[in-house]
Structures are given as C-alpha cells and as structure tokens.
Design a protein around this nucleic acid. Structure first.
Lengths: 194, 194
DNA sequence: ATTATCTATAGATCTATAGATAATGC
DNA sequence: ATTATCTATAGATCTATAGATAATGC
C-alpha cells in the first residue's frame, strides 16, 4: 500500500489541485475531506498524513488556485485581462476561474492563515500589471491606485453577476457595463471593444 | 406550549432576522438550524412549522437583510453612502452590514430562489440613487451604468478588504483608495474627502 | 525502520421528521 | 379542532484518529 516518495508527492499535489477546484465550485464548507480524497482517487484516512487539518489544506489550495490563475493570465496586457475576466465564460467557470472572486467571501470567515494567502494573491494580481516602464514615484502611486480600483471593480462585477439567477439579464448587464467602462479607461485601450 | 397568532408571527420574524445576521457573520453553511433557533430563543424542532427547509429560510433572510440595509441607507446621498460603505466600521460589522457584500459568494452556490432575492436586492441598491430629477433617456442610461460600476467597485473593495488578514495594511489601503476615487467621481462631491 | 495508504470507527454535528403537549381560536 | 412549540430521534454527514498493511528507503 505504500508508494514511492515521488508518487506520494504527486498525490499530495493532486489533492491540493483537486481541492483548489472543488472549493471554488462549492465553497470551503461545501466539500468534505472524504469526498475530496475520493475525487483525487484516494481514501480519506490518508488525508491526515499529508495535512494537519482541513484548514491547512484551505490555505494551500488558495495559494495553488491563485498561482494557477496567475500562470494563465501572465503575459496578458490589462485590456486582454479585463475582457477575459468580465466575460460570461469566466463567470460560468467557477472551478477554474479566479480564486479570489470565487472564495473571498468564504475566506473572510476562515483562519488568518487562509486570509494571508488571499492578501498575497491580491498583491500579485496588482503587481501583474505593473506596466510602468520606469515612471516616477507619483506615477507609480497613481498606477497602483488605478490597479486597486480596477481589480476591485472587476471582482465586484463578477461576484454580483454570479449572485444573480442563471440567465438573468442583470447578471449579463453588470458584466457588460463594467467591461466596457474598464476597457475604456484602461491605458492600452485600442482594440477589443466587442 | 402553543402561543398566540401574533406571538407566532413575531417568533417567525425573529427567526428570519436572527438568521439574516448569523448568515452574514458565518455564511449559510456556517450556521445550523438548531443553533439558529436557540439564538432566537426557540427549540429547533419548531423550525419546520415556519419554514419548509433551510433553503427557504436563506431566501427569506436574504430579503430581510437586504431590506434592513436599504432602510438604513435610504435618504443618504451617494457620497454619504460611499463614505459609509467603504469605512472600516462597515467592513468590520459583518453581521449588520451589507447583505450583498457578505453573502453574494455564498449565494452563487445556492438555489435559484436565493439568487433571485439577490438580484432584486442589487436592483434596489441601484435604484436607491436614482438622482435623476427627470433627465433624458441618454442620461438615465448613463446614470444606470455609472451606478452599476460604482456599486460593483464598492462591493469588490469591501469583499477584498475582508479577505485580508486583520490589521493588514492592504485591507485598509483597498478601502481608502476606492473610497477616495469613488467620492471624487460622485455627482455630489463637495464635502467629506476625509 | 519508516511511512503512505487503507479500513474502520469515534464522536460531533447536520437537516428533517414524528409524536406529545398545551394553549389558542373557532 | 387547530397548531405552535417541545422532546426525542432517525439517518446522513463531517473532521479526525487508531491500527493494520505493505512497499519504499536506508
């Protein structure tokens, strides 16, 4: 029943990545350890050789999900990012979409160790668009404020759109209005108005 | 053990209002029926004479919380609303604060009947600031888009701020940056810059 | 010898229901 | 007679632990 060290490490990674998806889809309290382990192809007793508690896994899964999101969006410019972030496709892909948008509400009620991962994730999201090819101190400050406002607006729009009933006109309107406005005020607004 | 019709109605209302607070504080899955009924001063078996299921209560509690929020903010102008909404006090009062910000993430994974209450609540929030003392069709459209973007930005800022660890500088920065920018672009920006 | 995984289970908790009780409302 | 509430419980599920197993890693 034992397994090679590399295999055990791979199993651990698979647990974290499975959790990162299931938690986004159903919330931290919506997925049990047994179901999660079964989804990863293991039995649930083995869980506690990998993690001290479910809360420990929440923190790791948050970091994993955020890092997966960053890998996907890295290399995009701000306009491309906004167009994707505020698309219906992204709204309707809870399990693979933005971890911060999917789980910030849950994270607010979880231990500090979980929230710490979200704070790092938010900082990374802001830094990902550090356009500034060397601008002055004032510009850096202004750009950071712009990124904070833009990200908050995008997260809020996604969260609100998802809280509406399926096929609700309001759900689409929120996405479309915010996408249009954020693209219009984005520094590299040239293409994709859709 | 029976109780007057008026008393039963009062008990029912108390259950809903207690739920509206507890759900905001701990999430829909973080509060059990037994604990909720105890908090309302009743035993949990009685719950099902008032509600068909916990999901039914979620929908009622959402409507109740949203309506309580509206009652508090009605009569405020947009600038006052923003200053309050993006204050540390509001961020730190989960149980009595904005229902939409506290529970939209949870609502996205709940039945359509719950999400329908959120859609109505979002529409009400937008309508609450219908400044327009009779403006043209174009202006009404532009104003609605402005309100959608403003509300999404405010909700996003609150949700992100709450996902950060307590006393995190980032948590305060997000609130302050968004408050400053939304107040600057608000139609009635004259006073309170803080 | 160590340890990753499995089976089995302890002990809590959760939603929901059944049946008794006792006061209201007709 | 109706019904709001209570006590008690069924049946599921949840987190976590204990002990057995068997293959790795020294």
């Amino acid at each position: 029943m034992k397994v090679t060290k590399a295999q055990a490490q791979a199993n651990r990674t698979r647990i974290v990545e499975t959790a990162a998806q299931l938690f986004r889809e159903r919330g931290y309290d919506g997925v049990g350890v047994a179901e999660l382990m079964a989804a990863a192809g293991l039995t649930h007793g083995g869980f506690y050789k990998h993690f001290g508690s479910k809360a420990d896994l929440m923190a790791e899964a948050a970091a994993s999900g955020i890092s997966q999101n960053s890998a996907v969006s890295s290399g995009m410019n701000l306009a491309d990012f906004i167009a994707h972030y505020l698309s219906r496709e992204h709204r309707d892909s809870l399990g693979t979409g933005c971890t911060i948008a999917a789980l910030s509400g849950d994270a607010a009620r979880k231990p500090e160790e979980v929230k710490a991962k979200f704070a790092v994730g938010i900082e990374n999201s802001l830094a990902a668009f550090h356009h500034g090819e060397s601008c002055g101190k004032r510009d850096r400050r202004a750009e950071r404020e712009m990124m904070i406002a833009t990200f908050a607006n995008a997260v809020g729009a996604l969260v609100l759109s998802r809280a509406c009933p399926d096929d609700s006109p309001l759900a689409d309107e929120i996405l479309e209005v915010c996408r249009k406005r954020l693209l219009a005020s984005s520094p590299d607004n040239a293409k994709q108005e859709q």
